[in-house]
């Protein structure tokens, strides 16, 4: 089955995936990696803020708020069966 690469901001609330890498090379990405968003990390989109942005994601057992514009730089493989 061919995998569809997508970015983290495309996941809906309740969907999860695994980080594959980053789109482009930017200094800003380094902080996201330090916070644990490195290759192979599982992320779950918990919810979107009331106005639709930012999004709350859960990774490594904690909750992080991330703006969609930053999430759009993170490539993920979506998990098919969502919990």
């Amino acid at each position: 089955m061919p995998e569809i690469k997508r970015t983290l901001d495309q996941l809906k609330a309740g969907e999860s995936g695994v980080v594959l890498g980053y789109e482009g090379e930017e200094d800003l990405h380094y902080r996201l990696k330090e916070l644990g968003l490195v290759k192979g990390t599982s992320v779950l989109v918990k919810r979107l803020a009331p106005l639709g942005d930012p999004m709350e994601i859960i990774l490594r057992g904690y909750s992080l708020s991330i703006r969609k514009q930053d999430a759009a730089k993170i490539l993920v493989r979506k998990n098919e069966e969502t919990l």
Binding site: L28, S63, D70
Partner: peptide, 11 residues
């Protein structure tokens, strides 16, 4: 521009 992405923890 920004030096950091705007991310923060939701404790």
């Amino acid at each position: 521009g920004n030096r950091m992405p705007f991310v923060f923890e939701l404790p």
